[in-house]
Design a protein around this nucleic acid. Sequence first.
DNA 1: ACCTAAACGGACGGAGGCGTCCGTTATCGT
DNA 2: ACGATAACGGACGCCTCCGTCCGTTTAGGT
Lengths: 211, 211
Amino acid sequence: MVTDRLPHTLRSDALDNRERILDAARALFSTDGLDVPMREVARRAGVGPATLYRHFPTKQMLIAEAFADQLHACRAIVDEGCADPDPWRGLCLVIERICELHARDRGFTEAFLSTYPEVKDVAAGREYTVKAVAELAQRAKEAGHLRSDFVLDDLILILMANKGIHATSTASQVKASRRFAGLAIQAFEACPQHAPLPPAARLASAAPDST
Amino acid sequence: MVTDRLPHTLRSDALDNRERILDAARALFSTDGLDVPMREVARRAGVGPATLYRHFPTKQMLIAEAFADQLHACRAIVDEGCADPDPWRGLCLVIERICELHARDRGFTEAFLSTYPEVKDVAAGREYTVKAVAELAQRAKEAGHLRSDFVLDDLILILMANKGIHATSTASQVKASRRFAGLAIQAFEACPQHAPLPPAARLASAAPDST
DNA sequence: ACCTAAACGGACGGAGGCGTCCGTTATCGT
DNA sequence: ACGATAACGGACGCCTCCGTCCGTTTAGGT
């Protein structure tokens, strides 16, 4: 057998490049979405294509690494919402903050809703988030603030819908998203005058792979 | 000067091909969006690329022609809504029907919201629609059914948001869209318990070109 | 039946994205 | 200071899409 000599410590320049690549990826993904060419990321990072591919053999890996902190932010938001003694207020907070997060980062939205072919890490993070929010929603419903015919897919619906909103600048994007979140929350709020909703559709929220 | 001999009557095979191309374009655009290659349209229509380009020199022209009837449908919906003696019911109908229309036809959504570089005819149709709906909304507001802080951009917001909703099949797409429209309507409905909304953002709804 | 020109579509050259190879450069242990 | 080697990036070949040219086919008037 071969005594594998994997140097688990990167050379300083390599580490440096790796960081620059991630920065470039984050910047481009957040403004232009995930469809930016790998070349473009490399160019922006000031490295050759080969270097980019050496660090991140597939686009998925790059995406997963680039959005690691966004995912943490997402998780933090959800945790914060769940910790709120008032579940309805917690849920509202989650909706508002997550919408804003997505408004600020187009790429993250795409990754999170996996428009893109299964980014594993992101998918895992999403699953956790979804589960936690489900409990929060249940509590809010029991408290009588969330309408009883709310289903979790409605939240996915809102997130997808939020993705559809595009504006020229990040500022107006966030503004629009905020208003949208406001509308969504009021649509979700229990209210006697509300007529029953059309039935919810099953959305591809967490389709488990055969893996 | 030249006595121009433009034959305003197409040869039968040409006319036939033209129809087949439009059918193919409609089918592909509606399921796959506007990004389908021109080649693909030609292939599906059973004609060569050159023939496609001869009939529709630019993609915009093809799009405009392909969505002519959708645009009429859109207009008809708005007219119907405006004709309703109850402006709120009329507005609801418009929202529901337009959302459904967009849900059934992905390409039309993109064209209508001109994700695509200015499709002139579509833009014109949109402008008419927007104006008519604005009046309808005003009446609904005066009747006290539509919340007073509603602005027209909210409707654009909903349309954009509706665009963001994607499902695996047209059926679930429509279903999801219906539920979304239902939520939107309830968010728009005047209701004493509703808190004020965040300020509306100016969306690029009808940016007039310098032309 | 025939002839003209309208209409067709295969084939071409160009642009841009992709992932990889390999000669060169720079790091780091001695 | 220097050599082994990790890391770099320019350049390559492949692919898909684009829009156009031009030799061939076919409609339709006489």
